[in-house]
Amino acid sequence: MCIEIRREITPLKESDCFLIIDRKQNAFNYPVHFHPEFEINFIINGTGSKRIVGDHISEVGEMELVMVGPNLYHGWENGNMNLDSKYRQITIQFSRDLFTNSYLCKKDVKPIKELLNNSCRGISFSTETINKVHHKIIKLTKLEGFEAFLLFQSFLYDIANSANQSFLTNLSFNHENDFYNSERIEKAYKYIVSNFHKKLRLEETAESISMSAITFSRLIKQRTGKSFVDFVNEIRLGYATRHLIESNKTVSEIGYICGFNNLSNFNRIFKKRQGCTPTEFRKDFESVKATA
């Protein structure tokens, strides 16, 4: 099934530094969508609801804090949530041009630059982080003007420096990603993206960026925490999940065009990373309705 997920027009005005929306409702009533703004969502009492960010689907706990970058699919559904009690969702949206490149290049705000780059994959923050920063989010709903903007920057800095951040999407799912702020990793990524449908060897990829295989393998591990094979497979899975969501191609066709040598291998690697088979993943998205 080909699923249409349309662009949302946000109420953020050109003159706004950021927009904050505070909702208290019994049920989520907006489906998966995307927009060019950054978005941060803090949810209280959403236990059992379903969160969808890019190609990641997960059940929500009592509290959660998630950030998504520009044009990354995201949305929440009721799932197994108790509809007799209200949940609270505080949403913060801000545009890409709020912070200039010259500002983000300053040493003191480097963590915020990395946060914005990483948000293109979707970021889930730990319970420990939520407990440390949730009072600032709530306070933001009561402030206006420059005082609110100062607190907003302080909040961004706090979550940028927080531990145990989790990336939600596969590599390459969102093509706007700025990978790892490393020129050589970026070159390797571009080489793999151009050749992921073929059999890729470590030696050939290393040669494409003028490095030895041993040095390149060590660099990949240091910068990504993954082996070369896992790095390549996650890039392939990013493209595979997009095809499963956006096209009518069969699972076998998708596995083949994304560089997996057979259906069994595709199913095994996909289930290990996503927690379900490609067919099950596609069925999970069939209930997603597009915004008008």
Results as ranks from 00 to 15, higher is better:
residue 99 F to P: 03
residue 215 T to C: 07
residue 160 A to S: 15
residue 54 G to Q: 06
residue 250 T to A: 12
residue 84 D to R: 00
residue 182 S to M: 01
residue 280 E to I: 07
residue 244 L to F: 05
residue 85 S to N: 07
residue 42 F to R: 07
residue 218 R to N: 12
residue 281 F to D: 08
residue 167 F to I: 11
residue 54 G to V: 07
residue 277 T to L: 08
residue 162 S to M: 05
residue 221 K to M: 09
residue 37 E to Q: 08
residue 38 F to A: 05
residue 55 D to V: 09
residue 210 S to R: 11
residue 142 K to E: 14
residue 4 E to T: 06
residue 50 K to Y: 00
residue 231 F to S: 08
residue 156 L to P: 11
residue 89 Q to C: 03
residue 236 R to L: 12
residue 32 V to A: 08
residue 278 P to K: 15
residue 270 F to S: 01
residue 196 F to W: 13
residue 27 A to D: 11
residue 157 Y to W: 07
residue 90 I to F: 01
residue 228 F to R: 08
residue 43 I to M: 01
residue 84 D to C: 03
residue 85 S to G: 05
residue 136 K to H: 02
residue 223 R to H: 13
residue 251 V to G: 02
residue 2 C to S: 10
residue 129 T to D: 04
residue 30 Y to E: 01
residue 4 E to D: 05
residue 27 A to K: 05
residue 34 F to K: 01
residue 82 N to Y: 08
residue 208 S to R: 05
residue 42 F to Q: 07
residue 199 K to Y: 03
residue 86 K to N: 13
residue 259 G to I: 10
residue 79 G to A: 06
residue 147 E to P: 03
residue 285 F to T: 03
residue 221 K to Y: 10
residue 284 D to R: 07
residue 188 A to I: 11
residue 279 T to A: 13
residue 276 C to E: 14
residue 165 Q to H: 02
residue 1 M to F: 12
residue 225 G to R: 08
residue 224 T to N: 14
residue 242 R to S: 10
residue 168 L to W: 04
residue 157 Y to I: 06
residue 97 D to C: 02
residue 186 E to L: 10
residue 13 K to V: 01
residue 54 G to F: 07
residue 292 A to E: 07
residue 56 H to T: 06
residue 211 M to C: 13
residue 110 K to N: 15
residue 23 R to N: 15
residue 3 I to K: 12
residue 71 N to T: 11
residue 185 I to K: 10
residue 247 S to E: 08
residue 288 V to W: 00
residue 274 Q to H: 14
residue 224 T to K: 11
residue 269 I to C: 04
residue 1 M to G: 12
residue 25 Q to A: 06
residue 41 N to P: 00
residue 245 I to D: 04
residue 265 N to G: 06
residue 139 K to L: 11
residue 17 C to P: 03
residue 187 K to M: 15
residue 30 Y to N: 00
residue 79 G to L: 03
residue 46 G to D: 01
residue 243 H to W: 02
residue 205 T to I: 04
residue 218 R to W: 03
residue 255 G to K: 13
residue 10 T to R: 01
residue 65 L to T: 06
residue 163 A to K: 05
residue 74 H to D: 05
residue 63 M to G: 01
residue 158 D to F: 04
residue 96 R to E: 14
residue 281 F to W: 08
residue 202 L to M: 14
residue 32 V to P: 02
residue 36 P to A: 02
residue 183 E to I: 12
residue 154 S to M: 02
residue 270 F to W: 07
residue 12 L to V: 13
residue 118 N to I: 08
residue 258 C to S: 08
residue 246 E to M: 07
residue 79 G to F: 11
residue 95 S to H: 09
residue 128 E to F: 03
residue 258 C to K: 11
residue 71 N to A: 09
residue 108 D to T: 11
residue 199 K to I: 02
residue 161 N to R: 13
residue 288 V to I: 14
residue 157 Y to H: 11
residue 252 S to A: 09
residue 288 V to R: 00
residue 112 I to C: 07
residue 153 Q to T: 10
residue 57 I to A: 03
residue 2 C to I: 12
residue 211 M to L: 15
residue 87 Y to G: 00
residue 51 R to N: 00
residue 13 K to Y: 01
residue 193 V to K: 15
